[in-house]
Simulated assay, not measured.
Amino acid sequence: MTGGLPIRQVAFFVEDVRAAARAHHEAFGSGPFFVADNIPLARAVHRGVERELDHTSAYGQWGEVMVEFVAQNNPGPSPFRDLYPEGSGRWGMHHVAIFVDDVDAELAKFAARGAPCALRAEMNDGFVFAFADTTATMGLFAELYAPTKTLVDFYAMVAQAAKDYRGSDPIHTIRMT
């Protein structure tokens, strides 16, 4: 479905992103991690219904791939709760992310193959990301986004931080607008 595009990120749904990032760092040497609290979205459409989606993410490098830990801050339906129902106490791997040229065109390709759009969201700066529901075939979601300069620069910054890391606190708070 993806034309052989490489996985750029693996992501886990967790209760506490800072605790998860710290534990992953201690177990696997990943990071450092950049934590964005309450990531602002201009719009989020989950399964065809516009909904609030307040989430916090921690981003770090794990070898050649970015690792993300994400927590949902508000109650209610979301692609995170599709896989890990609210109140279940269950957490785990949620999605892999890939770069695509056109998010909507790629979503249509996924949908034609039985993997419907679970979420299409826009950040305040117009950046679009989406989740195709590939849980029936892969057991997790596929996140799609176009490699904008801002996104590519962010990935490069996280990767460089891992190369430059010298053992200070592995958790750094950032702000996304």
Rank of each mutant, 00 (worst) to 15 (best):
M1V: 13
M1R: 08
G3E: 11
G4T: 03
I7C: 10
I7A: 06
A11N: 07
F12T: 01
F13T: 00
F13L: 05
E15M: 05
D16E: 13
R18E: 15
A20K: 03
H25G: 00
E26K: 08
E26P: 00
E26T: 02
A27Y: 04
P32D: 05
F34M: 07
F34A: 01
A36C: 15
D37R: 14
A42Y: 02
A42T: 04
R43L: 15
H46A: 09
R47Y: 03
V49K: 13
E50S: 11
E50M: 12
R51I: 15
R51T: 14
E52L: 14
Y59P: 01
M66Q: 14
M66R: 12
E68T: 08
N73L: 12
P75F: 10
P75N: 11
S78T: 09
R81G: 04
D82M: 11
D82H: 11
L83R: 02
Y84E: 00
S88Y: 09
S88R: 10
R90H: 12
G92N: 08
H95M: 09
V100L: 09
D101E: 15
D102V: 12
L107D: 02
A108F: 05
A112Y: 00
R113I: 00
A115D: 05
R120F: 06
N124G: 08
D125K: 14
V128F: 07
F131N: 01
A132M: 04
D133V: 04
T135W: 03
G139C: 07
L140S: 00
E143Y: 07
Y145L: 15
Y145G: 12
T148L: 14
T148M: 12
K149G: 15
D153A: 14
F154M: 14
F154V: 08
M157Q: 09
Q160N: 10
A161G: 15
S168W: 02
H172K: 13
R175D: 13
